[in-house]
Design a protein around this nucleic acid. Structure first.
Lengths: 194, 194
DNA sequence: ACTAGACAAGTATCGTCTCGTTTGTCTAGT
DNA sequence: ACTAGACAAACGAGACGATACTTGTCTAGT
């Protein structure tokens, strides 16, 4: 580590505000000055914790992926029927930025892929695998098998739905309603949006 | 009409080749000269049929929407089970540009929305309505109702899947396989990709 | 551990210029 | 109905220097 040690909570909050600023203006148009101001810290304080702007950005994105995947795991591990669990997990992952105008989402995404390498795609590909595992371990697997369908079919279809809804530019409410409908269709029983 | 009359077949072929050129290079980077050459016509011939570049582009996009929606109707009206009909209709609509690199799809889309006004969104919104009508008129509607789901739920979910798969950057084969899986899930029985 | 202030080097951004291309129109001709 | 060739006006791409901003580092101080 070339950075100085830092309280884990502070670091988390710092990265969250940094990500918010980056998301708002994009990577290029966001200055370290702006991030520092938003985080109530000096510009030099930022350089004390992160080698440079890229390192800060990478850490912010990495944290987003990390907490996102952790949320998916947590929702899927809850004690509830498979439908609501799938819904909550997908809402946590695909609904993250829904309702935000996010004018420069494209630039952020491209920069993330460029700086994070395969970690971006890896995280994205992990979600349908987690969904599949949860389905396979639930009674839904047997019901799907009866109709000649696999847990992987259902998981990949849910992924396509999630991505489609994410990029549809819906309001948060509409997103939730249609995600609930998609999960309902997959599990064969109504799931309430929450 | 300010344009001269033209044989309907010739017009159709002209618009198809124009669309192909526009799709390849985008609206801005495509010159009337290029379109004329691709259509084996003189540049002045183009101006004889279309007021200007925008009118040509609008006509090409309008034709694409028109033939696309007609294909959806035709596939849904076939004499076959609801699953294969939904699959074929969605493949025709959402799979239209799958497998094409389409580097400037974004520019084409933005320009279409700018020049076609609401016609673009209207056509897009019509597809799930057509899917819904086909589902509602099939035995699938009753099976869905048993589980507390509506034809609209299924149609909107299929739309989300279609859009998600369309923008996933898959190969044509992968697209077909995953579209078949999605339709299978919706109808509750395996549908073969074709 | 953190801030304040200053620094050279690098990078966007701006207005302006030029040059080649494209557009839309015209005329003349088949 | 269509082509050929020419045309002014508009446009886009590229180059240019001037200006302001940003980055990353340093030093001094709390």
């Amino acid at each position: 580590m070339s950075e100085t040690s830092i309280d884990s909570d502070r670091r988390a909050r710092l990265l969250d505000t940094a990500l918010a600023v980056f998301a708002r203006y994009g990577f290029r148009k966001t200055s370290m000055e702006e991030v520092a101001r938003a985080a109530d810290i000096s510009r030099q304080g930022l350089y004390l914790h992160f080698r440079d702007k890229e390192a800060l950005f990478r850490a912010a994105i990495a944290r987003m992926l990390e907490t996102g995947l952790a949320a998916v795991d947590a929702e899927l591990a809850r004690d509830a029927p498979i439908g609501p669990r799938l819904y909550a997990a997908m809402k946590a992952w695909y609904g993250r930025s829904v309702g935000t105008p996010a004018a420069n989402a494209e630039e952020i995404f491209a920069r993330s892929v460029a700086l994070l390498g395969g970690a971006m795609e890896a995280a994205g590909a992990e979600v349908p695998r987690k969904l599949e595992a949860a389905i396979a371990a639930s009674p839904l697997a047997a019901r799907l098998a009866e109709r000649g369908l696999t847990a992987a079919d259902a998981a990949l279809t849910l992924e396509a739905c999630g991505l489609g809804l994410k990029h549809a530019g819906l309001t948060r409410e509409a997103f939730k309603a249609r995600l609930a409908a998609a999960v309902s269709l997959a599990v064969g029983a109504p799931v309430r949006p929450g």
